[in-house]
């Protein structure tokens, strides 16, 4: 089963031209996800996997970019910005 992500407690997210900007109250710290238009803020509010959202939005993404995005999400998970579920 594909991994889904949600925001960790105390984290907010908003859309920027480069992608998504995360604000973590603890610190506070900022995290930048240069995902361009591939992901919306809502991605973290509904139970969606990366594959779901990309196929539903019919967004063209190369295997390489998919891997990069997936890795970036994993890094945000490691930093406690988002949670896997």
């Amino acid at each position: 089963m594909e991994t889904c992500y949600k925001l960790a407690p105390g984290v907010q997210v908003r859309k920027e031209d480069f992608g998504l900007l995360f604000y973590k109250m603890k610190g506070p710290r900022l995290f930048f996800l240069p995902s361009k238009n591939l992901l919306e803020e809502g991605f973290f509010q509904k139970k969606n996997s990366l594959k779901d959202i990309l196929s539903r939005g019919r967004k063209q993404i190369s295997e390489n970019n998919y891997t990069i995005l997936h890795k970036a999400l994993q890094q945000l998970t490691e930093k406690g910005v988002i949670l896997e579920y």
Partner: peptide, 15 residues
């Protein structure tokens, strides 16, 4: 990278 992305100006202030 974060500094460069922020330098261009964001859609709204962070704070």
């Amino acid at each position: 990278m974060s500094t460069k992305l922020a330098r261009k100006g964001l859609r709204a202030p962070v704070n």
